[in-house]
């Protein structure tokens, strides 16, 4: 539904030119929700604005629903934009208009008559849970309600694609959840294709089918969400996920932990379980099979849609040969093992 091909965007020229996007290739399949995640300044905002040409790429092709936007004239582009709804971090509602009139605005711009507009707007207010607020002004609404108005407004022209520019970043966690649920609902009910940008892993985890990590104007990795969390291919993605999961090593352990090992130290390992291995009683199994003790220092299980991701930090207590054997065994099954240090045993 959306195809970006080798998108480059530079600001300024000559020596002072700044490259915001550096050869972006992205494909979003019809009916899916795709997320682009990255830190501020990575180029997310520019990227999403290139999809409906609010920002014109310096070079590259943008195609939405089979139409090459980059080759359209002004009138053609305006018509194409009716097929692409957009919502924003700060909602961008018109304070001078009521909720109803805000949702009606894109239809007025399309020169639809009043009766037709009414027919479109009322069901949208129903869908977004705003039916009782039609005559209120944005100033009387909460942030979540404002974003609902913005969503209804973006859907008014019956677009095929919805672009979400940090749509939940200004909202509290509870409201974020309800807005994400609404986005998922319209994705499923209306078959709408959604492309969103965010710096919040939670958003990606909750509703995206596909995720791309952007860093320094480049897409570092694009993957199905479950895979992205359980088997990130790039170092940048791994770092991002670790930051998000905040699996911290207890400070007293960190104080005792050293880089090197000798006969009297025990390895501390970080284990990452995929969906296949997370349900297995691994610890007791290892303990029985290799005759060692395993002390669990930290553990966390994350549900990422249909996937499960387990993370654990554990100390392997046994003689060096046995612990080496255990680590080798764990690596041979569906388990990601990283030795993060060694602690002296407490004899």
């Amino acid at each position: 539904m959306i195809t970006l091909e080798n998108i480059v965007k530079t600001y300024g020229s000559g020596e002072r030119a700044v490259t915001a996007l550096d050869g972006i290739d992205l494909h979003v399949a019809a009916g899916t929700i795709s997320g682009v995640i990255g830190l501020s300044g990575a180029g997310k905002s520019t990227l999403i604005r290139c999809v409906n040409l609010l920002e014109r790429p310096t070079s590259g092709r943008v195609e939405v629903d089979g139409v090459e936007l980059t080759s359209l004239d002004t009138a053609g582009l305006r018509a194409a934009r009716h097929q692409i709804g957009m919502i924003f971090q700060h909602f961008n509602l018109l304070d001078s208009r009521t909720v109803y009139a805000n949702v009606a605005l894109p239809l007025e711009l399309m020169k639809m008559d009043k009766a037709q507009i009414r027919e479109r707007v009322l069901p949208l207010l129903e869908l977004t849970g705003l039916a009782s607020m039609a005559e209120r002004h944005p100033a009387q609404l909460s942030g979540g309600q404002k974003q609902r108005v913005a969503i209804a407004r973006a859907l008014a022209s019956r677009p095929k694609v919805l672009l979400c520019d940090e749509a939940t970043s200004a909202l509290d966690p509870h409201t974020t959840t309800s807005i994400l649920a609404l986005l998922k609902e319209i994705n499923q009910k209306l078959g709408l294709t959604i492309l969103l940008i965010t710096h919040e892993m939670e958003v990606v985890k909750t509703i995206c089918d596909q995720v791309s990590l952007i860093e320094g104007g480049k897409l570092v990795e694009t993957a199905e969400v479950g895979r992205f969390f359980t088997a990130p291919a790039s170092r940048a993605a791994r770092a991002f996920i670790n930051d998000y999961l905040e699996l911290e090593i207890p400070p007293e352990l960190l104080a005792r932990m050293g880089e090197s090992s000798d006969g009297r130290t025990h390895p501390v390992v970080r284990l990452t379980f995929g969906t296949e291995s997370v349900d297995r009683p691994l610890i007791s199994h290892l303990s029985r099979r290799f005759d060692i003790d395993i002390s669990i220092l930290q553990a966390r299980v994350e549900a990422i849609q249909s996937h499960t991701l387990g993370l654990m930090i554990a100390e392997l207590i046994g003689d060096p040969e046995t612990t080496a054997e255990v680590i080798a065994y764990m690596q041979s099954i569906d388990l990601d093992v990283e030795v993060i240090g060694h602690v002296p045993g407490n004899e």
């Binding site: 409906n52 934009r81 009716h82 961008n92 711009l109 022209s157």
Partner: peptide, 22 residues
């Protein structure tokens, strides 16, 4: 707010429409 103009542009508004409606 420039965001309102951006929103109007994303809806396919013409320049006169942006001026008169927004």
């Amino acid at each position: 707010s420039p965001g309102l103009i951006e929103a109007a542009q994303s809806m396919g508004a013409t320049a006169p429409q942006i001026i008169l409606k927004v």
